[in-house]
């Protein structure tokens, strides 16, 4: 005969878990969402970081909120989840407050997480790990994109300066480039700075 007084079984690891993602950058939120979808049994919901965030979060009642450090809404979550251990459903940030290296890695990556109490550490750690990896990858991609963009802009500027020199002084393309490079080396400046000076001067002199 089953013992009716026995406690309900512990939640299995496969049990549903709702993760909310809050990030002022929609692109970054999408990258994180995609990564977190790989967590078993997880439902991932991206919530826009707008003025009605609180109502949307209350309606969703997530188990975990992953939020970017750039979001002003972190303070809102501190109230909502309750920072005190005296409240009914206290929250653990980063699972274990003594896990300083993990907190450091998360903050370096730009993330913070809020978790309802009772969630097991082994369920939360992979979420934080994925978030850290994804945010770092996103930052790297963004850096590379910025670099590529500025490289392209530099090349365009140098081409324009070359054209100006070729027309004004009747030089070949190679010779125009050599002269700019020599000037840059002699003045210990970047060739793009010399190019910019030429373009600016040409603009002013019409």
């Amino acid at each position: 005969m089953p013992d009716l007084a026995s406690p309900s079984p512990l939640p299995s690891p496969e049990q549903h878990l709702t993760i909310a993602v809050v990030d002022p950058s929609r692109a970054r939120a999408a990258v994180l969402e995609e990564g977190l979808r790989t967590v078993e049994g997880a439902r991932v919901v991206v919530i826009p970081d707008t003025v009605d965030l609180l109502d949307r979060l209350s309606a969703l009642s997530p188990d975990v909120v992953v939020i970017h450090l750039e979001s002003p809404s972190r303070d809102l979550l501190e109230q909502m989840f309750g920072v005190s251990r005296l409240v009914e459903r206290p929250v653990a940030m980063f699972v274990d407050r003594s896990d300083v290296p993990m907190m450091q890695a998360a903050v370096d990556a730009g993330i913070s997480a809020y978790v309802v109490d009772g969630l097991k550490a082994e369920r939360i750690k992979p979420i934080i790990d994925i978030a850290i990896l994804r945010f770092n990858a996103f930052a790297r991609l963004q850096r590379e994109l910025t670099e590529a963009r500025s490289e392209l802009a530099d090349r365009k500027l140098i081409d324009r300066a070359k054209g100006i020199l070729m027309t004004a002084r009747g030089l070949s393309e190679d010779e125009a480039y050599r002269q700019m490079r020599r000037k840059a080396m002699n003045e210990k400046r970047k060739i793009v700075d010399i190019a910019r000076a030429i373009v600016t001067a040409a603009d002013l002199l019409g």
């Binding site: 450090l69 750039e70 979001s71 809404s73 972190r74 907190m103 903050v107 913070s112």
Partner: peptide
């Protein structure tokens, strides 16, 4: 910083 929580964490870390 946009939030007090982030100031607190960065100071603590």
């Amino acid at each position: 910083e946009p939030s007090w929580a982030t100031l607190r964490d960065k100071l603590a870390l």
